[in-house]
């Protein structure tokens, strides 16, 4: 009858640093592949609306602005699955790992994506 099998582990934990991450003061490392906010390149978009058709939650809309297209995403509806990225024939959409997207007003969740500035080589 050995009571308290965990005594050794419990006493050792007493002197170790707690395993809690004090978010948001401490932020953990976010892996590269984590699916967060989308980015859109209007130069590549041809307006085929395949991404709109395949979105499971109807979160993305492609609007014609001038002679280019812009993407309008409802961040509240988006489930961050990345199916639109896979469906796009011209690879105009990509997914980043930015996930801290909470807002206090729901109207701020509807964002229009015009594209990222081109990175200098």
């Amino acid at each position: 009858m050995s009571f308290g099998k965990m005594i050794k582990e419990a006493l050792e934990s007493l002197f170790r640093k707690p395993a809690t991450l004090n978010y948001p003061v401490e932020k953990g490392k976010v892996p590269e592949r984590v699916r967060g906010k989308l980015i859109f390149d209007p130069d590549k978009c041809i307006g085929c609306q395949l991404c709109v058709k395949d979105c499971p939650s109807e979160a993305i809309k492609i609007n014609k602005v001038g002679d280019k297209y812009e993407a309008e995403i409802d961040l509240g509806k988006c489930i961050y699955c990345g199916q639109c990225v896979d469906s796009c024939v011209k690879k105009a959409l990509a997914i980043t790992n930015e996930f801290e997207l909470a807002q206090l007003e729901s109207s701020k969740l509807k964002v229009k994506l015009h594209g990222e500035p081109k990175k200098e080589p």
């Binding site: 892996p31 590269e32 984590v34 699916r35 489930i79 961050y80 990345g82 199916q83």
Partner: peptide, 15 residues
């Protein structure tokens, strides 16, 4: 969970 996040992109509902 962290392992799954770095392989698949999400901690649950891996897609």
């Amino acid at each position: 969970m962290d392992l799954l996040a770095s392989i698949t992109g999400n901690r649950v509902n891996y897609g």
